[in-house]
Write a protein that binds this DNA or RNA. Structure first.
Lengths: 255, 255
DNA sequence: CACTGAATGTTATAATTTTAACATTAACGC
DNA sequence: GCGTTAATGTTAAAATTATAACATTCAGTG
């Protein structure tokens, strides 16, 4: 019935998507309205969020809801990733087959996938799978294997081959380190094969990283900057930083 | 510090394991103590359960916590499955590689796996994977593929071969229908391959079903009763019912 | 069998959350 | 610009939940 109300709920839903609870107080402040308004949003509109003793909790099954209060810092950190993902979502088109990387960066993107009629998501991350499993309009393909708790993702020998067999359209890749000369890297070696395979088969390759990763090199190298078509990030100076050795094909988008 | 307290928490944890919230009132009643005692349990002992506005919520990451109140019926239904799983757990030994089937029957078993030093769990179900991912002492192997929301599980062409390649020790299988003559069946056809493969490779095959499944036949047949070594169920009359055509090898355990 | 101390229960009080009623503001058509 | 209505804000009262202090029960011990 109300547009703003729906917007606020979407906002809160994204804040909660990666888990945790949000106090009514903070939710109201985050949205810039009174507590009463949030209450009314929840009771008027159908929503997977529910209010337990003054705290907002997500009710997505099998959505993830660890129970701790979201700190203000976390909520703001989420805002950066949210902006990044909102920008990245513009590159998604109806019917796409997306490869979605592990990590926390791309989690806010998943909520936005419900705006499409039909999509396919390929991933090797448990937390991504959980968020996508709740979306009825998205086909989910999870690449299994041995679970690595550190990155909430799976690894297996056959993964490279499995990925190359799938018709992946767009690869959305995140990273723990990005450096012009020394390339793009992550923490865990088992992530290298799936990332590389996705980059190899996808028709469009997006790198989504917040600016804090620039100039950093992590143990596991997996690609050069020139392997990507698009970089989505949040620093004004990113275009200059990344195009120091200008590569004709790399387009930098600042969210 | 207190034995009973820890026991109560374990009980509540299992009740919450498959999601939902439990009102302090009901938790107290379930444990047969006062609300104050549950409060004290939560504040004294370290536990993944937390109290939000009078309701108990589980805080296992990436444990599943859909937010709705557990009805009394659900809580009691859980009690049957809990008993079944407690009985089934006695067949598990240190170092085992377990195949764990999809469905809700075996979920209460997963909490009990923390009592072992080292185990490996193989599964093709998302909800099982979520519960196991939280256990630091259990190696998790998830068989991926296309996600089927109806059973919260994955299916793929290669699954049969993947399972047969793993050194599975014990297969814990659940079912939607069990009939002496017409065999053991489930709802979804994509579950047939993994179940059969697990039965084929495992050294010990357990069928865990509550008695309400007896005499029922579901669309997808996957095994005969004689394919199992052990049946764990909750009906006194199970031994007679199931051994009407006595099979030398089938041992029936009533929980 | 009384003593002791831990565990649990009970009660009253304090704090918080929820609800409802009414006031205010903002948006929109005329 | 004015009137109308929906949306939001404010306040006070009601309901619920949390805390603290004290009472009771129970198990184990000398």
């Amino acid at each position: 019935m109300n547009d703003r109300s729906a917007q606020r709920l979407a906002m809160l839903q994204e804040a909660l998507a990666s888990g945790g609870t949000l106090h009514l107080r903070d939710a109201a402040e985050l949205c810039g309205v009174s507590e009463m308004t949030i209450r009314r949003d929840l009771s008027t509109q159908p929503s997977p969020i529910s209010l337990l003793g003054g705290r907002l909790v997500m009710a997505s099954y099998p959505g993830v809801t660890p129970v701790y209060d979201l700190t203000e810092q976390q909520a703001s950190h989420y805002q950066v990733k949210h902006r990044l993902c909102q920008r990245a979502a513009r590159f998604i088109e109806e019917g796409d087959t997306l490869f979605i990387d592990c990590g926390s960066t791309l989690i806010p993107l998943l909520g936005q996938l419900s705006h499409f009629r039909e999509l396919t998501v390929v991933t090797y991350a448990l937390n991504v799978a959980n968020s996508v499993a709740a979306l009825p309009n998205v086909r989910l393909v999870l690449l299994g294997g041995l679970f690595h708790a550190s990155s909430q993702s799976f690894g297996s020998d056959g993964m490279r081959a499995s990925i190359e067999r799938l018709g992946i359209n767009k690869a959305l890749i995140s990273a723990a380190g990005v450096d012009c000369e020394r390339g793009v890297s992550c923490f865990h070696f088992h992530e290298v094969a799936p990332k590389q395979a996705a980059i190899a088969t996808a028709m469009q390759r997006l790198l989504i990283v917040d600016a804090s990763k620039f100039g950093i090199v992590r143990p596991a190298y997996f690609a050069s900057l020139s392997d990507f078509d698009i970089v989505v990030t949040d620093d004004e100076r990113a275009p200059e930083l990344l195009n120091r050795h200008p590569q004709a094909s790399l387009s930098v988008t600042v969210a």
